[in-house]
Write a protein that binds this DNA or RNA. Structure first.
Length: 791
DNA sequence: ATCCTGATTTTTTTT
DNA sequence: AAATCAGGAT
């Protein structure tokens, strides 16, 4: 028998790999670049490589850091590796950049002036904060929306430009203005012991640059670093990898003060394996820098480069189309994808009159395919923007075809869920002003905006946490006696809840008026943290929060269907907590909050259910389906008009390339002559990407395509609906008689997309509010236009 | 402090 | 078509 006790496994591991795949898997130490075309088995190669490293004793599980793009991809990877290794992957760091950074920062928070309970703000929180900062700087919100301002700040952070650098190099009044807001915004974050998504990366880079000890420790810990989707890394992520694995280009700017110890000490181990495809770089808008992959060989001149060009997914027709389209981009790394799967079917291209006709065509085809024996789970419908899912949903519901939508509105964005999370966040992080203001008056307790502003201003002025400021309301200047009382009661329950977490008590007690109490030792200031702030089951804590805060009570008092729906959502959240409690690892509150902050909706995708999948093209990255529909192929929609204006055409083309290459056997491309955008009709030419596909690969339908006035008649089983009325005024007729458009409170209704619901409010101008039974969501609808009918 | 109403804006894409 | 926001009324 061979010396290696795993010899048998090893042979098996390499068995079904093609030559370049095997080369990538068995590559030893040193930098490795895997250029993996779409469908060339890159996930497989990564998983096999991890298993190989372990079987050949080049690494222990705990010495591997494998970065994926989504949590979903991480758990899929974990499963695959477990299957290969035949045992658990305990200790292996297999997660997203953001999760890995959050985990490192928890451990090292004190060094950066944070506590380990720091809050992670999602985009919505960050935007709210950016708005506040912009207001404080006197920025005209009409001229510069908070989102635009935040984008600028985010872009700077992704490039590792801190406030001082930014202000120093500001070259226009606009940039000076942004610099000012950036300054305020960042100070607020620090004061609140909070980080936004970008900070997670930026702060980790700071940590590793400033503290040699930490840098060396993590370098030693992660002997092998593997990165998936490398083409979508931004500069901060790039820098992080350099710091962890060493090598790479020299730092771009020394950080003042610290005299930049960045590159003293041993050069890293340089065991960095990255996998990517420059043709699939689609996240430039959020700072991804395609140059990272294009320049990998400059950074590591001795890097082994492996190209995976055999595609195991798609027919030759589909690949030819993809190759032809992407050839219109400049500066690609040469790759020629090929497949042994045969020509296959032609690509179906259809022109429809409007988005309704398009949706009917798509759903009609789905119906036909399913009748012919296809599984719904084999079909995906892709679109450029989330808003485009609505019409397709309508039609799927009418045809009674089960589907799932990935992305769009998320569970964790619902108000009641955000409220509940904010309570927990405030319990963990007493500095969190955003959570405090969110929670203080919900349910209503008579703590209004003015009171909140006074409390937070006082906290800032006295340099104490909001918690402390609020806990001694009588010391806040300008508060009326009613406000003092309300705050006192609120903070008393918060203190009780905090006691449940096991964390030490904080701040002033009720109405003690001792002046020197402010000087009392502050447990959260420095390194030592709130002690064993864990060990309470999250589900229990959450139930206590919801009960003692009066949140549930207030909802029950409403006695409305929508309140009932909210309560059910909250019960679901408690269930999430219960699952977390049952999982492995210490169940600390911080860890729970971190996990929740970093989950994406794409993570909730299921494969096995008999459901058609609807999602944006971005969300489709990394997935494959036997049948794929790409809708909305009009100039202005896809490519998106904003991308056309801002020179993002190549990225749009790569996005189209990603979409096309998701398809295994059948590909449908549709465009509408006319489409409602913001409720107004707009007319669009067929997408330029369509014309980039060689004609012989396309089947444009027996009809020869769209002709003015004629209209395409989809092969719909049931009735055919007339949509085009020739005059330009368009209104989709619904199958069921709508009857009158007036609804009454409490009436049972059916919505084409959302199913059964009940009218919970009737507003002026024909707006009704409906709470839907399906998901408990509540929506405002235009009674006259929305596809709702009385049940 | 809270509710109501009308105006404005939203749609790129997401960790 | 629908969500968010600001300003004004109660």
């Amino acid at each position: 028998m061979a010396a290696n006790p795993h010899a048998e496994h090893l042979a098996e591991l390499l068995e079904d790999l093609n030559e370049p795949q095997r080369e990538a898997v068995t590559h030893g130490e040193g930098p490795l670049l895997i250029l993996a075309g779409a469908g060339s088995g890159k996930t497989r190669v990564l998983a096999h490589r991890i298993a190989f490293l372990i079987y050949t004793d080049q690494a222990q599980a705990g010495e591997i850091l494998a970065i994926t793009f989504t949590n979903k991809a991480a758990s899929e990877m974990r499963e695959r590796v477990e299957r290969l290794l035949g045992h658990a992957t305990r200790g292996m760091w297999l997660m997203t950049f953001h999760s890995a950074c959050a985990r490192i920062l928890r451990a090292e928070a004190a060094r950066l002036g944070y506590t380990r309970q720091f809050t992670i703000y999602d985009q919505a929180d960050a935007r709210r904060l950016a708005k506040r900062s912009a207001d404080a700087c006197g920025v005209d919100p009409k001229r510069y929306t908070p989102a635009a301002v935040l984008n600028q700040i985010s872009a700077a952070k992704n490039k590792l430009i801190d406030v001082d650098d930014y202000r120093a190099q500001a070259a226009s009044p606009f940039e000076e203005m942004i610099g000012e807001v950036y300054d305020v915004y960042q100070r607020d974050l620090v004061r609140m012991n909070a980080m936004d998504f970008d900070d997670l990366l930026f702060r980790t880079v700071n940590l590793l640059e400033l503290f040699e000890e930490a840098r060396e420790r993590y370098r030693e810990t992660f002997r092998h670093v593997l990165v998936d989707e490398y083409q979508d890394t931004n500069h901060a992520q790039y820098r992080l990898l350099q710091l962890l694995a060493g090598g790479g280009a020299p730092p771009q700017r020394g950080r003042d003060g610290g005299a930049g110890p960045a590159y003293s000490g041993p050069v890293g181990h340089r065991n960095l394996a990255v996998v990517g495809d420059d043709a699939q770089s689609i996240y430039g808008f959020r700072g991804a820098d395609i140059e990272n992959i294009l320049r990998f060989q400059d950074d590591f001149p001795d890097a082994r480069v492996v190209k995976l060009e055999q595609n195991y997914r798609s027919t030759e027709t589909i690949l030819s189309a993809a190759n032809a389209v992407i050839a219109n981009n400049r500066g690609q790394i040469g790759k020629k994808l090929w497949s042994e799967l045969g020509q296959g079917d032609q690509i179906q291209v259809r022109a429809l009159q409007d988005e309704h006709a398009e949706a009917r065509y798509v759903v009609g085809e789905i119906q036909r395919l399913v009748d012919e024996g296809a599984s719904r789970a084999e079909i995906a419908v892709l679109y450029r923007t989330n808003a485009m899912s609505r019409v397709i949903e309508d039609n799927l519901v009418r045809s009674e075809i089960g589907y799932q939508v990935i992305g769009g509105t998320k569970f964790y964005e619902r108000a009641e869920i955000k409220d509940a999370i904010a309570y927990l966040t405030l319990l963990a992080n007493p500095y969190d002003v955003v959570s405090f203001t969110r929670v203080a008056n919900s349910p209503r307790r008579g703590i209004g905006a003015t009171t909140l502003a006074r409390v937070t201003a006082h906290a800032t002025a006295m340099d104490v946490s909001v918690w402390e400021a609020a806990a001694s309301p009588s010391r806040v200047p300008g508060l009326g006696s009613a406000a003092v009382k309300a705050l006192g009661r609120f903070m008393a329950t918060m203190a009780e809840l905090r006691a449940i977490t096991g964390a030490p008590a904080l701040g002033g007690e009720g109405d003690l008026d001792l002046e020197d109490q402010v000087a009392q030792p502050e447990p959260d200031a420095g390194g030592e943290d709130a002690g064993p702030a864990g060990s309470v089951p999250i589900a229990e804590l959450l139930e206590a929060v919801l009960a003692q805060s009066g949140y549930i009570e207030a909802l029950e008092a409403e006695r409305s269907i929508e309140a009932q729906g909210r309560i059910e959502n909250l019960e679901q959240l408690v269930e999430v907590g219960r699952e977390f409690d049952a999982g492995e690892g210490e169940d600390t509150l911080e860890r729970f909050l971190q996990e929740i902050a970093l989950v994406a909706d794409a993570d909730s995708r299921t494969d096995d259910a008999g459901l058609v999948t609807l999602m944006t093209l971005h969300n489709a990255k990394g997935l494959e389906y036997p049948t794929v529909f790409i809708t909305g192929l009009e100039d202005g929609v896809f490519p998106h008009s904003r991308a056309i204006d801002e020179g993002g055409l190549e990225e749009e083309r790569r996005l189209f390339y990603v979409g096309v290459t998701r398809a295994m056997r059948k590909l449908y491309l549709t465009h509408a002559r006319r489409r409602a955008v913001f409720g107004a009709q707009s007319y669009g030419m067929p997408s330029r990407f369509l014309t980039e596909i060689p004609g012989d690969l396309l089947d444009e339908g027996s009809d020869g395509g769209w002709r003015p006035g004629a209209g395409f008649t989809p092969s719909l089983a049931g009735r055919s609906e007339t949509v085009w009325n020739g005059g330009g005024q368009v209104k989709a007729s619904r199958g069921e008689g709508t009857g009158t458009t007036s609804f009454r409170l409490g009436e049972d209704v059916v919505h084409a997309a959302f199913g059964d619901g009940v009218v919970t409010a009737v507003e002026p101008d024909g707006v009704i509010v409906v709470r839907f039974a399906g998901d408990g969501s509540e929506r405002k609808l235009m009674a006259e236009y929305a596809p709702v009918t009385r049940r």
